[in-house]
Amino acid sequence: MSLNKIESAQGLRIRSTQDFAAGLFMIVLAGLALFLSRDLATGTLRQLGPGMLPKSFAVICAALGLLLSINSLRYKGEKLAGWSWRGVLFVLGAACLFGLTIRGFEIGPLKVPALGMLVSGPIVVFVSGLAAEDVKLKELTIFAIAMTIACALLFKYALSLPIPLAPWLFGI
């Protein structure tokens, strides 16, 4: 949206924090890509090197980001909205827990055996379910168990995917 006279008299200021941040984000990502690909040969036009495209794409990304930031000074737009940490923590945390427990892991002194889907399944459903504002613990617990059994039947037996169920208990 263009500005009216009063607003343009106010000079340049950030009129859309969302766009401004988006522009910065593009520039930062492009900078990271340029940094990571600094040692890759650019090559010549006749024989493109491995670094040619990553670097070119990064430069274009940075330019677009710059344009976006500049535009955010001139045009009105959305404001940056807050994060919902609760969702990020529980939903993404649940997925990470699934990855960590399904076949076990070892990070330094921490050691978790392969627990299999019969343990990882309820974990992922239960932990992610905590992200909802209107969570009901009893309902969620029952649902977690039911979903796991359904998934075990579907993926392990109906579709015979090689996913461990409970190696520590049944050996499969």
Partner: peptide, 15 residues
């Protein structure tokens, strides 16, 4: 309700 729907989505995606 969505509070049950998204955990189901999550376990599906994870598997």
């Amino acid at each position: 309700p969505y509070r049950l729907m998204f955990p189901a989505i999550l376990i599906f995606c994870s598997i």
